[in-house]
Simulated scan of single mutants.
Amino acid sequence: MNYLAYISFIFITLQFINTLINYIFRPKLSVSNNDKNVKVSILIPARNEEKNIAELMNNLYKIKTPIIEIIVYNDNSSDDTKKIVDEFKKLDDRITLIDATNLPEGWRGKNYACHQMANIAKGDYLLFIDADVRLYGKIIDDAIAYAKRYNLGLLSIFPKQLMITLGERITVPIMNYILLTLLPLELVRISPFASQAAANGQFMLFEANLYRKYFLHKMFKNSVVEDIHIARYLKSQKVRIGCIAGENRVVCRMYNSYSEALKGFSKNILMFFGNSFSLSLLFWALVALGFVPILFVNTNYLAIYVIEFVFIQLFYSLTSNQNFVINLLLFPLQQFFLLHAIINAILIKMGKPYTWKGRYI
């Protein structure tokens, strides 16, 4: 029992250190002057996005520079995605709509969409965003300035997440919790190791020539977690990348319910742990049950454990622009969801049928 208690105590202390570092040294985008010579292409893969695409088109319509074009790839949508984009094309001549043909063998739909859009994009920078993302202010200018300052081939941003329902509050924070308790984000930029890479497909800004040097979505055409694979590959090629969490000018509402979040997280949760079943379950056990062996060892250790636990919730919530009190109160339910997602992901790996947006994966 002593051995398990020491492991639990060391683990939560490392989590505490990581979240403290991420809070104190969190990368920030400073306000920059517009570089009128820079041209940006916004690339949006869209499959059955009628609930999101109109608001996004209206959002981008208000951002005049440095966007020179907005390319939407209608990926065989069965809803009104195409109709909505066509209506906005009449208002904004920057919009180009690509209608998908059959998905080639060996490709994932989103990866093929991104590859096709990149092939025709004219910008100096390629900004891939999801249809549920919203951009505000001069976020694009400031992101480009940050990328230039640190000579980044890729800058990825984890948006501020909108959470309205209880199901969202139980599920969505898990992504940032894992990220910010395991990895100091500054290491993404300064570390040479590919294992210390992170990215989020909701916002990925590439220098265009760098992207086309590798044709990154084609390279990982069959991956359901292409964002992470791309980030790791670029680091392995000595390309500098950066990652920022909780930027409040990039906003996203990922999921609308517990069940929707379960489907979404189940396809990529294992990648946070090197695609390892055992490491993912070990992480869950240490986070959710780590206090148990300490209860039987020393109450002084338990007091320190609880203090570190509370500050972990505080620091990761602040870094993510999330509500600390809600995350603290919902922590047990969030850990139930994490276990649920891990088990579901394991079952999928073992052959459980799984579909995402109408496609079998």
Rank of each mutant, 00 (worst) to 15 (best):
I21H: 14
Y3S: 05
L318Y: 13
K357A: 09
P173W: 08
S278N: 04
F265Y: 15
I178P: 01
K82W: 03
M271A: 12
Y211V: 07
I139N: 08
T81V: 11
P104T: 07
D35P: 00
F324G: 00
T181L: 01
W356I: 03
S41A: 14
G109R: 14
L279G: 01
L339E: 09
D93Q: 12
F193M: 05
L91H: 12
K352I: 02
K89V: 07
K213R: 15
K213L: 14
Q161Y: 13
I84Y: 04
A341V: 13
K64W: 10
V85C: 04
P353L: 08
Q202M: 09
F203R: 00
Y301H: 05
Y255H: 07
L338T: 06
M350F: 14
Y6H: 06
N248S: 14
S77E: 05
L126H: 13
N222D: 15
K90A: 13
H115G: 00
A198H: 02
V250S: 00
N248V: 09
R94P: 07
G290R: 03
S257D: 00
W284Y: 13
K138R: 14
I174Q: 13
N33E: 13
V250K: 00
I84P: 01
L179D: 05
V325Q: 02
I178G: 06
N209L: 10
A197N: 03
G123D: 07
G137A: 08
L234N: 06
R94T: 12
N48F: 04
Q15F: 13
I67D: 09
D130I: 01
S276H: 01
Q335G: 00
A46K: 07
S278Q: 05
L185F: 10
M254F: 13
L162H: 11
R169K: 15
L152Y: 07
A285P: 03
E207W: 01
Y112N: 02
K28G: 03
L97F: 05
N59M: 05
E226Y: 07
E55Q: 08
G137V: 10
K89C: 12
I53C: 10
E226P: 02
N275A: 06
A131R: 03
Y305S: 04
A46H: 10
Q202L: 07
L339C: 11
D227Q: 08
R240F: 10
Q322N: 10
P27D: 08
P27M: 07
N248Q: 14
D80L: 14
G358C: 06
L56H: 04
E105Q: 12
S259T: 08
A198I: 01
N33I: 10
E308T: 12
L333S: 13
V133W: 09
D141T: 15
T65V: 15
Y360A: 07
K263A: 08
N176T: 15
I144K: 05
N151Q: 11
K90E: 15
I70G: 02
L262F: 05
G274I: 11
P173T: 08
G351Q: 12
G351L: 11
S41V: 14
I190F: 09
S32I: 00
N48C: 04
G358H: 06
L91C: 09
D80Q: 14
D132Q: 12
S77I: 04
